[in-house]
């Protein structure tokens, strides 16, 4: 069973072939979700009664923060496959995910800060969500830095995998400690930024945007992984055949 799965899907060659079939569908689904989410978020969803049209930043901020967290968890899944089952493709997926995840975290920080300016009157407040996203960015940087200093390919994969697992065990503890820290020190100014009571007309664009962000992650992940697979399998026969076609 495992052998079959490995041969059919997880070997670099078959993964390269299968992902080519998958990519157009992911791209199509992303285009649909993203265009609906953008249009509905900007124009159809009603303005929030407290924050006016400023709340529309939620449609890019919350999905990017959510996706950034999700990518870190997906890295841990890849890490388990790397360490336990020695799947080559998983290690490639893990290091590609880190770079995409760092970008999404950066995006969540920037949009959160732009949202904060009109709502709090300042670009940055040590609010629970922004703070834990900032820490997540540091975790991503740590992972990327670790992988960039290790010369040996196999050691790099396995060291990164272990770091991702350590990070993912700690992430919930860090997240809840930051939330707890924030409620301890919370001032009255934050109440305006409380979660807007979500009406369905506001919720559907948000769900579409979350789906679109996740699909974009899948799309760029597959594209990046395909590049890395080619580079790592540089000495194998199938890559030579592929290039000469």
């Amino acid at each position: 069973m495992w052998h079959w799965l490995n041969q059919k899907f997880l070997a670099p060659k078959s993964f390269y072939a299968n992902s080519a079939k998958l990519i157009p569908w992911i791209a199509l689904a992303f285009a649909l979700c993203f265009s609906y989410g953008l249009f509905a978020g900007l124009f159809i969803a009603p303005a929030d009664y407290q924050q006016g049209d400023g709340f529309r930043i939620i449609y890019v901020h919350v999905p990017s923060a959510f996706t950034a967290m999700a990518i870190y968890f997906s890295m841990a899944v890849f890490a388990v496959f790397t360490l336990v089952f020695r799947v080559k493709v998983a290690a490639i997926g893990m290091s590609c995910s880190a770079k995409i995840g760092a970008w999404f975290t950066f995006l969540a920080l920037i949009t959160g800060s732009i949202w904060g300016k009109p709502m709090w009157g300042t670009w940055w407040i040590w609010d629970a969500r922004l703070t834990s996203v900032l820490i997540l960015l540091f975790l991503y940087f740590g992972f990327i830095a670790l992988q960039s200093v290790i010369p040996n390919q196999q050691t790099r994969d396995r060291a990164g995998a272990l770091m991702a697992i350590v990070g993912v065990i700690n992430l919930p503890i860090i997240h809840y400690s930051v939330i707890w820290w924030n409620t301890l020190h919370q001032g009255p100014t934050l109440s305006k930024f409380a979660k807007p009571s979500i009406a369905p007309a506001m919720l559907y664009p948000l769900l579409a945007m979350i789906a679109a962000f996740l699909l974009f992650y899948a799309l760029t992940l597959l594209l990046r992984m395909r590049n890395q697979i080619l580079l790592r399998e540089i000495n194998s026969q199938w890559v030579a055949e592929l290039i000469h076609e």
């Binding site: 900007l42 529309r56 009109p118």
Partner: peptide, 9 residues
């Protein structure tokens, strides 16, 4: 703010 957030995205 809204448009700059969307364009940065």
């Amino acid at each position: 703010y809204v448009w700059s957030a969307y364009f940065i995205t």
